[in-house]
Design a protein around this nucleic acid. Structure first.
Lengths: 69, 69
DNA sequence: GAAAAGTAGGGTAATTGGGGAC
DNA sequence: GATGTCCCAATTACCCTACTTT
């Protein structure tokens, strides 16, 4: 299972910085279920660093595929 | 490999401004694999600033002898 | 307890993606 | 072959106020 405590959590602002987007956008991702999120008792969201890093590492050099014409 | 975050990212519009081209053209570059890109969970592209700067410097040194130091 | 910064909401503008055509 | 422009749908950015976090 992937449920490990001790996982570092990131704030919406930190995630937003990594993706170069607005913090509100990160919130929308969570609402849309595109990214997992944890809620503080006060209702604020926290994100798993490992999941964020995984999403970031999907750097696409989309030229790897065959050139057809 | 190239999979390292902690890199400043640029939006398609910003890259387009740097190159003085239409954002659509930047998209085509990404599709053609001429420039690497990271996708937000929403599908929008982000570009690595270092790579963009490198491409820009290639423009100024085009058809010229390599810069040695 | 108080203050500053960050976040959750909700609305509305701006940007981007995709596919095709010229 | 490469670029710009137009269309439409989706995503994202910026505006506000109230609440949470530190």
């Amino acid at each position: 299972m992937t449920a490990h405590a001790g996982e570092r959590l990131l704030t919406p602002g930190e995630v937003a910085n990594l993706f170069r987007v607005d913090p509100k956008t990160v919130t929308r991702w969570a609402t849309a279920g595109r990214i997992g999120s944890i809620r503080t008792p006060g209702g604020h969201r926290r994100f798993r660093e490992s999941e964020v890093q995984e999403l970031l590492s999907q750097l696409t050099t989309e030229a790897t595929e065959p050139v057809r014409h």
